[in-house]
Structure formats: C-alpha cells, structure tokens
Amino acid sequence: MRVETKRILLIGGPGTGKTSLISHFKSLGHTIFHEISREVTLAAKKKGIDQLFLTNPILFSELLLKGRISQFNDAPAVKKPVVFYDRGIPDVSAYMDFVGTTYPKKFTKANTLYRYDNVFFLPVWKEIYQSDNERYETLEQAIRIQDHLKQTYTNLGYSLIEVPFAPIEQRGNFILNSL
C-alpha cells in the first residue's frame, strides 16, 4: 500500500522557536528534515569564510536550494503520512529579497515546482530572540526577514497558519490538531 506523505513546513524569521518545535516533533517520533543553513555556514567557516551568506549570497543560496530540493524529494521514501521541514524552498528567494540581491530564475521556478501541503508560520518572539555565531541578524532584521517570508509564501498562494506564542507542547499540539 502506498503512503501519501504530507509535507508540513515550519517557517519564520530567526528567533521564533522553530528549532525547539522541531526537536519536540522529533521526540514524538516524527520525521524531520532539518534546516541546513547552519551546516552550510559551518562548512564555509571551515574553509575560512566567516559568513558565506554575507560574502557570497548567491553561492550560499544555491547550496541551500540544492539541499532543500533534495530534502523535498526524499520525503516519499520515508513512507510516513507526515514529515516536517524546518524552512522550505521559498525561504531562499525570501532571504535574497531581504538582502536586495538579484538571483537566478531557477530560484523562483523551484518555488512553483515544489509545493508543501501546509505551511505554519511562527512569528518572531521577542522574549526568546537570541543571536549566536550562525544567527547574526538583529531583532529588527529578524522582523524584516519575517515580513519577506510572509510576502513570498503569500504571493505563491500559500495560506499561512500562524502558530501562537505558547509553551512548546501547546504549539506542537496546535500544529498537529490543525492537520
């Protein structure tokens, strides 16, 4: 029997609690496709590039796009009814719009070729926002990124489901009950 896999996407600017929510879903046994930007950033740092996104945003974004398309294509092999993604393919062009960089048409083409079933939007949570070695954005920049993400996904025809501020378990239940 073939299992139809629903692709559930979590989006939001930096500092929204996505990583904690993803960890919660993983602890419940759900399949997770993790955010790959930290991996790309850390690999670049090993090559002596402190912030690849700031140094070469096109290369950084091409690496993200390639990785996210691979994650998207890997979902059916999981053979589970639901998989979760920490960020999606359209995030790439949203971030490029945030920095005001023109980018190849393959970025926007990928946004229409690969579609997620549900998109949950986590707003920036000022009380939990922190920067670190891989998250260099200020709170104000995080809010602007959030606005670009919302605009990008809305323009692509997604109906964003906003996840309320609450403890992790309640946020997780909100998402699971919305499926």
Rank of each mutant, 00 (worst) to 15 (best):
K106T: 13
Q130S: 12
T112P: 00
N111G: 04
T16K: 10
P81I: 00
F25N: 05
R135M: 03
Q151M: 10
K150C: 07
K150V: 15
K79A: 12
T41F: 08
N111C: 15
V40C: 05
S20Q: 09
I168D: 09
G13Y: 02
L10K: 03
T152W: 02
P76M: 11
G12T: 08
D86A: 04
T112S: 13
I161Y: 02
H24M: 09
N133I: 04
G29Q: 10
A43S: 15
N133R: 08
Y116N: 05
L156G: 13
L139Q: 04
E169Y: 12
T138D: 02
G100K: 07
L21C: 09
T108P: 01
Q141F: 06
L28A: 03
Y85F: 15
I128K: 12
Y85E: 01
R135V: 01
L176M: 13
F107Y: 13
I22T: 12
T5E: 10
K26S: 12
I11E: 09
L160Q: 05
E169C: 00
G17Y: 03
S20C: 11
I143F: 12
Y116A: 10
V99T: 11
K150S: 12
F53I: 01
L52H: 02
N73L: 15
T31K: 14
F84W: 07
S159Q: 15
P164Q: 05
K150N: 06
E140H: 12
N111T: 06
R38H: 07
E134Y: 02
E127S: 15
D74F: 00
I175P: 07
R115I: 13
M1I: 07
D74W: 04
Y136H: 13
T112Y: 08
I36P: 00
E35D: 11
W125Q: 15
Y153D: 07
E127I: 03
L113Q: 14
G48C: 05
F25S: 08
A166I: 07
T102F: 05
L21T: 04
R7G: 07
K109A: 12
D132A: 08
R38A: 10
I145Y: 03
L63Y: 02
K105S: 14
R115G: 07
I69P: 03
E35Q: 09
V124T: 14
H148G: 00
V92Q: 01
Y103S: 02
V99R: 12
Y136T: 14
I161H: 08
V83N: 07
L10Q: 09
T5Q: 08
Q170M: 13
F33Y: 15
I69E: 00
L52P: 07
K45R: 15
I175S: 01
G157F: 09
T41M: 10
K109V: 13
I58S: 06
H24G: 02
S23C: 02
G29D: 05
E4I: 05
R171E: 06
M96C: 00
I22Q: 02
Y114G: 09
F25C: 10
M1A: 14
R115A: 04
T16Y: 02
K66Q: 08
W125D: 12
E134K: 05
F60K: 03
V82K: 07
R38N: 06
R7L: 01
R2A: 11
